[in-house]
């Protein structure tokens, strides 16, 4: 486990240099378009004509495909199988499994749904690969998001790996004392307390001191906050963002008109 929780890969690329808000808007726009544009192949088109080329131009194609194959494909694949089997639509049965059957219609339906979810996840993966969390939060704070949000998000990302490390240590300790994660249900349920207790109480007791430490450093100061880093933005990007918003509105309109 890495010491911080972030997909971000540092590269020098066009995609990395874009303002974080632009990339966030792009990710949202792609997801909405994939979901609402009323053409069957929209999600596949978005994936191969926009997301994959962007990952190449962002010099993160390797990382992106790794995430797509290892994280996204299994999750979406499972969804596809579930939906193909469980959707009670269609006549033409292609596969039967007890009371469940996959029809040509349910397979087509499942494929489109899976493709949409695939686009949703991969759009955000692309965003996360090319954007450092503190860059995003500084930019959003500069645009008026209360600075406490930046604190919460970044410190959560840093605390989770620490907590997981602690959890692993506790699990290892309990295992050496005979905890068996394969034993009977009651035993496993009973093991929950000794595993969770130390983890939870230890970290809750720290809250007070941590609050004092940030208060001592002006956390609740009423003055306008500044930022160590300057995040680049341009007129061009602003236009780009608004065009993306227009695209979203347009596709929602098309969806409503079509149906």
């Amino acid at each position: 486990m890495s010491d911080r929780l972030s997909f971000h890969v540092q590269r020098d690329s066009f995609l990395h240099r874009l303002n974080p808000l632009t990339k966030l808007t792009l990710a949202f726009a792609l997801v909405v378009v994939a979901f609402v544009l009323p053409f069957y192949w929209t999600p596949i088109f978005v994936l191969f004509a926009v997301i994959v080329p962007l990952s190449v131009s962002g010099k993160i194609f390797r990382e992106f495909s790794w995430a797509a194959l290892r994280l996204i494909l299994p999750a979406v694949g499972f969804l596809f199988v579930m939906q193909a089997l469980f959707q009670p639509i269609g006549e033409q049965v292609v596969f039967k499994f007890y009371f469940l059957d996959a029809t040509t219609e349910s397979v087509a339906y499942a494929f489109r749904n899976a493709a949409r979810i695939f686009v949703m996840i991969s759009a955000f993966t692309l965003f996360l690969l090319s954007t450092h969390p503190s860059e995003l939060m500084s930019d959003l704070t500069r645009r008026g998001l209360p600075s406490q949000f930046s604190y919460v998000v970044i410190s959560t990302l840093q605390i989770i790996p620490q907590m997981q490390a602690k959890a692993n240590a506790i699990i290892a300790a309990q295992r050496s004392r005979g905890l068996d994660t394969e034993s009977s249900f009651l035993k496993r349920a009973g093991a929950l307390g000794p595993l969770v207790g130390p983890l939870v109480f230890g970290s809750l007791v720290e809250v007070e001191e941590r609050a004092i430490a940030i208060e001592a450093r002006g956390f609740t100061s009423k003055r306008a906050k500044t930022s160590l880093y300057e995040i680049a933005d341009s007129k061009f990007e602003s236009v780009l963002r608004w065009s993306l918003v227009a695209l979203v509105v347009l596709s929602i309109g098309l969806n409503l008109w079509h149906s």
């Binding site: 503190s134 604190y151 970044i154 410190s155 840093q158 001191e209 430490a213 940030i214």
Partner: peptide, 8 residues
């Protein structure tokens, strides 16, 4: 406990 956690 004095590390803010908000910085890398």
């Amino acid at each position: 406990n004095q590390i803010s956690g908000a910085k890398y």
